[in-house]
Amino acid sequence: MQPFTYERAASLEAAVAAVAARPGARFIAGGTNLLDLMKFQIETPAHLVDIRHLPLRAIEDLPDGGLRIGALATNTEVAAHPRVKREYGVLARAIVAGATGQLRNKATTAGNLLQRNRCPYFYETSLPCNKRQPGSGCSALGGVTRSLAVVGTSPHCIAQNPGDMAVGLRVLDAAVETIRPDGSQRRIAIGDFHRLPGDRPEIEHPLEPGELVTAVTLPRPPGGTHHYHKVRDRASYAFAIVSVAVVLQKDGTGRVAFGGVAPRPWRVEDAEALLPDGPAAVVKTAFQGATPTVENAFKIPLAERALALALSEGRA
């Protein structure tokens, strides 16, 4: 871990200004991912701005019936929030499918959205990685790929987004609210928040330097039944091989997003329109153009099976 200086931000404005002003400065809140990557010197901030004490932790009702989740609300706080449990069950279930009690107590909503990928080659600093060293090459191609993405990848990166919470947010049509160093604010639809690698795998999200996520907003509850099924080798404390988030309405329509299969939560609206036709039709369309490896090709039939399981729960 390289030496860095540290400050505790006194206000939102000061925090944003502090990061904007210093090259190599970063926000830190939960830090569960950033600090881990700093230990490997995959992340090497020169200055950390601690935003943990900023007033961004509240979870509040919105006038339109939606919910505004402060960026610093911990995973635990969000999952335990009465309205999240009652009306946004897919989000509560996605959150608690991830990590562990300890990590969820520390990890924040914004930090979770911004967590970096878990490709083993991203961590193997002796080998090339286009996310770590842009242009150096992708060591995962031709390597051990069982856990990696099967769709939405590029010849430059096949890392998967490891998140669970983000998959839940994706089916809920969440939006990300930010503040920029100039004080302006903007909303980014969750579907636009995680970028596909293309030829710039190192660019993972649309945030500008110094731009800070302040909240995630949820529209009015979608109703229906909510399911999140996460498949992994051991029963807990592991990233998804495949996960599926489903919000299913009584008439058989609904929304579907997959986790563990792509560089971002994978929701294809054209595919979910086929829900009444059954899981095979949905998966066929959702994974059109997939480029799995021999090792991870099973994720596609597994996605279909996980969806079938979620639908069977929904009908039960």
Partner: peptide, 11 residues
């Protein structure tokens, strides 16, 4: 409860 290894003392 948290993991003390993934938290800076300074925080």
């Amino acid at each position: 409860r948290i993991n003390a290894c993934l938290s800076l003392a300074a925080m």
